[in-house]
């Protein structure tokens, strides 16, 4: 029964991985930029919640109403003012810029908040669980998984139907043709980045809630997990990130059955195995990263 339990917990963990990977997937899919600061930005968003809870008395969930739009706006500005310029310089420039950001954020957070873990209280949500068939499932992981499914379905619908979603796909395919049609591709890029930042803000706060709090350098772990999720699932597929998240989550929880010290290592090895044997990911198309 403990194996079955581990699988169920792993699937739910995969929901969290999928949410944290969405932003990375969108930024790469639309702009071909790999955002090395993804994890650090998630943690920045979680610290935004911490600050709001401390200063204004908002709850963790209501703080999302502020943190998500603020991060989206930050993403819009970052793309317009910094990344757009970097892309025009060289292929390496956006990587260097986002890596620079990923070094600045945690160190600034240490200076402002110390390196101690900052708590993100959620009442008793983190400890409540529902049980079915002898397996106890935490309410929070269940909720996270639900959010992942709704978010991915919503984004798919947006990209398929909404005008700005269709423009994003067009910009990803051929930004010059889009400009000939009279659409400013830089605005489209900035909108896509804003959406990506909104999802990573949500992911960052969820991460803090899951862990009971955040510490400045947590982003170094979350960026790797998000990246592994994208690659395992396959580039260019949002549902793929959910599959990738589930594979990674189940691998980790099964690894945890052997020893509590190895889940991250086993997950990393799983990622390397996918690279070696299925380099396009599980649902990936025949395109190389």
């Amino acid at each position: 029964m403990s194996w079955l339990n581990a699988v169920v917990q792993g699937v739910l963990l995969g929901g969290f991985f999928a949410i944290s990977a969405l932003g990375l997937s969108i930024v790469f899919g639309v702009m071909r930029i790999v955002n090395l600061a993804h994890g650090a930005l998630m943690i920045l968003a979680a610290y935004g919640s911490v600050l709001l809870i401390e200063r204004t008395g908002l709850g963790t969930w209501s703080s999302l109403l502020v943190v998500v739009p603020v991060m989206a706006a930050l993403g819009y500005l970052l793309q317009r003012l910094v990344l757009q310029r970097a892309v025009s310089i060289s292929e390496l420039a956006p990587l260097m810029v986002t890596f620079g950001i990923s070094i600045m954020i945690p160190n600034a957070l240490v200076e402002l908040f110390t390196s101690d873990v900052q708590a993100l209280p959620t009442g008793n949500l983190a400890t409540r669980s529902v049980s079915a068939g002898g397996i106890a499932v935490g309410l929070l992981p269940l909720l996270t998984f639900g959010i992942a499914v709704v978010l991915i379905a919503g984004l798919q619908l947006f990209l398929a139907r909404a005008r700005s979603g269709r423009l994003m796909r067009a910009a990803a395919d051929d930004s010059q043709a889009l400009r000939l049609m009279g659409v400013d591709n830089r605005v489209v890029y900035a909108q896509a980045t804003a959406i990506a930042f909104a999802t990573l803000a949500l992911a960052g706060v969820l991460f803090g809630v899951r862990q009971g709090g955040v510490a400045p350098f947590d982003g170094q772990v979350t960026v790797l997990l998000a990246f592994e999720t994208v690659i395992i699932g396959g580039l260019g597929s949002l549902w793929g990130t959910l599959v990738g998240g589930i594979v990674l989550g189940v691998t980790q929880t099964l690894g945890g059955e052997f020893s509590p010290e190895v889940p991250l290592l086993v997950g990393n090895l799983m990622f390397l195995a996918v690279l070696a044997f299925r380099p396009n990911g599980i649902l990936g198309r025949e395109t190389r990263a």
């Binding site: 790999v34 090395l36 956006p94 790797l224 690659i231 990393n268 690279l275 380099p279």
Partner: peptide, 12 residues
């Protein structure tokens, strides 16, 4: 992996 994905791949 190529480009940015090579970057994070080496990190992993």
């Amino acid at each position: 992996l190529r480009g940015g994905y090579f970057a994070i791949g080496t990190w992993v």
